[in-house]
């Protein structure tokens, strides 16, 4: 029996719901001295996993774009399409949750001088361009090549976004995991891990479902062409 992407996505969605509940009720509060809006800090359990999931999706977009561009693999094109949609959804989720936190903590939802915020926003806009562009253009090798090129070159923003807070910490907080400072409480780390696993499952489910969806779209287009030819 094949596992349907939709079932995997639902499992991830349930995990995201569990992360919300644990983040609100079980995770410890942060010090009132360290944050201006300590309650708003709880959005961190959603914001960081959605950023992680977006980075995974952009990684898959890169792989799909490379394999389409150089190998002309149909599965790679389907991966490109599905991961651009997944990157857009999780990227928007991350930007939105960050704006909510920024409004509460900094007093402004966005800082145009912060490198991390702006490179991540550019990645999300890139996936928006790929999703809308694909829907408005007829499918063909040239169209696919153009979008795949954007998917490949756009990926340069991923490592740049990752190191941005390490090199230029302007406003976005620095790393709290995979760092020698180790400032994260263990209960907080557990909720964050559950969130990261849930969002990973969610994104894998959506990419699986999205790849199948693209396959169905191409099959439908093929059948429609055959039907039109036979009707003439």
């Amino acid at each position: 029996m094949s596992i349907r992407g939709e079932a995997v996505a639902l499992l991830g969605l349930a995990g995201a719901g569990l992360t919300f509940w644990l983040g609100m009720t079980w995770a410890p509060s942060v010090s009132i001295d360290a944050f201006k809006a300590p309650e708003a800090q709880r959005i961190f359990y959603w914001h960081v996993p959605s950023a992680w999931a977006a980075m995974l999706a952009f990684g898959m977009l890169f792989v799909g774009s490379i394999f389409w561009f150089f190998k002309r693999s149909e599965w790679a094109w389907r991966l490109h399409v599905a991961s651009s949609e997944a990157g857009l959804a999780t990227g928007l989720m991350c930007v939105w949750s960050g704006c909510i936190w920024g409004a509460a903590e900094w007093g402004v939802p966005w800082d145009w001088t912060d490198i991390r915020l702006n490179t991540f926003a550019m990645l999300t806009l890139l996936s928006l361009y790929l999703v809308l562009g694909r829907r408005s253009q007829p499918d063909g090798v040239e169209t696919r090549d153009t979008f795949a090129a954007f998917g490949m070159y756009g990926f340069v923003l991923v490592p740049f976004t990752y190191i941005a807070t390490r090199l230029w910490q302007i406003r976005h907080p620095g790393p709290v995991v995979a760092t020698s400072e180790g400032s994260l409480n263990s209960d907080m780390g557990t909720v964050l891990l559950i969130g990261a696993i849930s969002f990973t499952v969610l994104i894998i489910g959506h990419v699986m479902a999205g790849m199948r969806l693209t396959k169905l779209e191409l099959r439908l287009e093929d059948l429609q062409n055959r039907y039109e030819e036979e009707s003439r």
Partner: peptide, 18 residues
């Protein structure tokens, strides 16, 4: 309450996408 509303909105958006 503001945080719960924001969270529920985002879960709703994810559910809608699925």
């Amino acid at each position: 309450t503001y945080l719960i509303a924001a969270y529920l909105g985002m879960i709703g958006a994810l559910a809608l996408w699925t």
